[in-house]
Amino acid sequence: MQKETYFGVDVSALSYDEILADLKNRMQQDLKSTIIAVNPEKVIKAEQSNELRELINSATYQIPDGIGVLLASKLKGGRITSRVTGVDMMERLLGFAAKEGYRVFLYGAKEEVVSKARENIIAKYPGITIAGYENGYVQDPDQVINKINEAKADILFVAMGSPKQELWIREHMNKMGVKVFQGVGGSFDVFAGHVKRAPLFFRKLGLEWLYRLLKEPKRLKRQLALPRFLLKVLFSR
């Protein structure tokens, strides 16, 4: 599989369509797959944390969620040609599940968020099977795992925030019959209509981070990871 490495962190160079095609093939082979979003902030943290770096690199697909990763690939003559965002990857997987007849389970967030997200997803994708859901306040893993297995889910979205959601997936994935696991952070809030994404204009230009910063100035400290990361890339060999 095509991957690039930045400061010890792997990033997949596949597009949405390439990931879905590869996933379909892996599911037909009864293989489990995990998806984790990678952005400059996460790369910088992973450089200082062996556990986080190993967690990212052990995933099947490390999607280039941040504009900084795309720019770094361009600076280094890499093969990443577009962002693959976590929320859009979830959107593509929902369409894929509806088309192919795969069963979906949603785990995480508040009850009113995950239940509304389920309702909106069913409305948007007629024929999709949301086999079950559970809010993130049910923390007994055995209870959640049993519910997921009883639902015979093929695809599981976990919304706990990163890296907590990925650690939960890694710890429990082999106890479930699920084939595709994705940690989706705050994506349930988007599907529930509680959080609005940046206008398409900002997203197409890769400026979603700027829109979010303008809406939430307190994010400035986190966003400083972007120039730090690009400077490190620029001056690295």
Rank of each mutant, 00 (worst) to 15 (best):
L220T: 15
L220A: 15
A225L: 08
Q143S: 03
M173S: 12
L210G: 05
N149V: 04
F7S: 12
E41K: 15
F188A: 05
I19D: 11
P163L: 06
T81M: 07
K215W: 00
A13I: 01
A72R: 01
Y211C: 08
M27T: 02
Y61I: 06
N25F: 01
L75T: 09
G78F: 04
T60L: 06
I145P: 10
L23S: 01
M173E: 14
K218F: 11
K215T: 09
E54H: 12
N50W: 02
R212N: 01
K74A: 10
K179Q: 13
L71Q: 11
Q48G: 00
K124L: 12
E91C: 01
E4P: 06
K42Q: 09
L14N: 12
M89W: 07
V138E: 12
F7R: 10
V195D: 09
L55D: 10
D65H: 14
N174H: 13
A13C: 15
I145M: 08
F105Q: 09
D142Y: 02
Q2M: 08
R170W: 01
S82D: 15
L214H: 09
D10V: 00
F105L: 10
R170Y: 04
L20K: 08
V38Y: 09
K42Y: 04
R92S: 11
Y125P: 07
K218P: 01
A225C: 08
V195N: 14
K204R: 15
A72D: 03
A159L: 00
K45T: 02
V43N: 09
S236A: 15
F157G: 06
G185H: 03
Q165N: 06
R203D: 02
R92W: 00
D88I: 02
M176R: 12
G78I: 04
V114H: 06
E112H: 06
D88E: 15
Y211K: 06
